[in-house]
Design a protein around this nucleic acid. Structure first.
Lengths: 169, 169
DNA sequence: TCTACAATGTACAGCGACTGTAGAAGCAAG
DNA sequence: CTTGCTTCTACAGTCGCTGTACATTGTAGA
């Protein structure tokens, strides 16, 4: 545990160090610096000795980012939502749209993974566990045509990417 | 389409070029070279002009690798299965174990993604689409405690990694 | 034979979203 | 003052490819 931070943590109005922010919002110190570098966390003030000091605003922002990441939103999607928030007062239809796209992606992944589950289950059930030479698992893996159902590739089960949300061509 | 390959494709006994192998087994040329580099595809013979020539054995091996990848197996897991295959005659319990672990991973991912789906659905249903200031989506994203159920982080929905299958510490 | 163009070769950079490391400096407690 | 933590910058590594640059080789058509 950090020692000097206990002191600062008590007076919640005071600015906090990057380590305290990390613990408070549930991120690693390097991740926070990375978010600053890519511009989704604002550049904080610095102490006389060049250390970052954060306010409660930063805690809110970082919690928003981390939670969205946990729900699978990509950094570009999060960046877009942050920009929309800053235009306060407007309608949130675009935010809904981004969240809706994320939901579609999640559902597609579930479908894909269920196909994989079936395939793996079937493969394992067929193997009698006796000999490599007659192993159904290896056989099925060697020959896609033995698959009962179509399964996609895992490249497409990754989290929604910039290309998905913001196609360029 | 490659022109000279049509010729070679007819006599299926003959060795084939990397491009023909790529089309036959469903991989990109660079991917094959990458697999050779990391040692899961054997180094093929070369022509007098230094070009790789592949046999039917290579087609089988590459199909095995691609199919396993499509089912979400990691490269280390595939490497392990290939090594086990070379010890032909032995029992295939270890192959089953690797496939079983993969199944566990897939099932865990499905569980996680269903939680995300619920969360996103609930979030979207709560938003009346009127104003950013009162947007439930942004609110929920800003405050994890508003979530009904626990959801993990998407980092853990990635494909089974070397660390998962072969932990080192 | 000449000319195009496709395919292949090597080597290396880039993707996404971080994570880890090295080495220096600062800060507080004992 | 020393010890031990934290922070700083800068950069390399993760995973499984994919794309690029540039040189060379092979082949088909004129």
């Amino acid at each position: 545990m950090p020692q000097k931070e206990k002191h600062q943590a008590k007076k919640s109005r005071a600015n906090m160090s990057i380590g305290t922010l990390a613990k408070t919002a549930g991120a690693k110190v390097q991740t926070i610096r990375y978010y600053e570098e890519i511009g989704i966390m604002p550049r904080p003030d610095r102490t006389h000795s060049n250390r970052r000091t954060y306010t409660q605003e930063a805690v809110k922002r970082l919690r928003f980012i981390r939670h969205a990441r946990e729900l699978g939103f990509s950094i570009p999607a999060i960046r877009a939502m942050i920009e929309l928030q800053s235009l306060s007062g407007g309608p949130c239809a675009r935010v809904d749209e981004i969240a809706g796209q994320q939901l579609d992606v999640v559902r597609a992944k579930i479908t894909r993974l269920k196909a994989l589950e079936n395939e793996l289950t079937r493969m394992l059930n067929c193997c009698d566990g006796s000999d490599i030479a007659t192993c159904r698992v290896i056989e099925v893996l060697s020959d896609h045509s033995l698959c009962e159902s179509e399964h996609g590739s895992p490249e497409n089960i990754n989290m929604v990417s910039e290309k998905t949300l913001f196609p360029r061509n």
